[in-house]
């Protein structure tokens, strides 16, 4: 699928997601309208996890195969993942302020998401600050692996530390559960956000390929 087509499909999915999130889904009884932030907050968070998982897989695949396409995939996904993590945190804060009365608390899930974003910002910084182009890819991949390994350990550490965040409403054990219409709205919004990730990743990869082409042409020009 071409990027333009994918962009139009994503846009259409977002129009549908807005309808389902704002009109179709019933108003939550205790929190009221503000609960509708949930329909984009949760998919943005899950998508950022997926994006960071792609960074880990891409980094390992690059170290194993030395194919530059894995390296590109890893750091482009990291950048898009940081955007989603940032959006997720911002949405969460705008929900927490009216519902909890505070912007931020050092709760397990919040802290984990913050640390994940920090790990992958550091990962992107490493790549940006290595001048030697041939050394950048393997070194950044190593940071990607170390960062990915950190994710489950961070999860455990913070889990033992504290928990205040509402437990997952889906598969969250006894007593949890989402109204069926809310579930549909979440699924539609999730699909839209997922498509957005693929779209943004493809656009970012296209930028990266063009950048590498520019570097190659500059070498050709100076060599002549």
């Amino acid at each position: 699928m071409k990027d333009r087509t994918l962009g139009i499909v994503t846009l259409a999915a977002f129009v549908a997601a807005l309808y389902f999130a704002l009109i179709y889904a019933p108003t939550e009884t205790t929190m009221g309208e503000v609960q509708r932030i949930f329909y984009f907050h949760v998919p943005a968070g899950i998508t950022s996890y997926v994006a960071f998982l792609v960074v880990g897989v891409g980094s390992i695949a690059f170290l194993a195969t030395r194919d530059p396409k894995w390296d590109r995939l890893a750091y482009c996904s990291a950048e898009v993942g940081v955007v989603f993590a940032g959006a997720n945190i911002a949405l969460g804060m705008l929900w927490a302020k009216p519902v909890w009365g505070i912007w931020w608390t050092w709760d397990a899930r919040l802290t984990l998401q913050l640390l994940l974003a920090l790990i992958f910002v550091a990962y992107l910084m490493v790549g940006a600050y290595i001048s030697d182009a041939s050394r950048r890819a393997p070194i950044q991949a190593v940071v990607g692996v170390l960062g990915a390994v950190n994710v489950p350990i961070n999860y455990l550490a913070i889990r033992i530390w504290r928990t205040q965040h509402p437990s997952p409403v889906i598969a969250g054990g006894e007593g949890s559960g989402l109204d069926a219409d809310m579930g549909i709205a979440l699924a539609v919004a999730g699909a839209a956000v997922g498509l957005l990730y693929v779209y943004l990743l493809r656009r970012r990869l296209a930028v990266e390929r063009t950048r590498q082409e520019v570097e190659y042409l500059e070498q050709v020009v100076t060599a002549q």
Partner: peptide, 19 residues
Amino acid sequence: NVDGLGWLIAAYIVFFAVV
């Protein structure tokens, strides 16, 4: 809940502005 609506609109604006 009118107050909640304000937060909702703010959140959606922030989300779409970021994207």
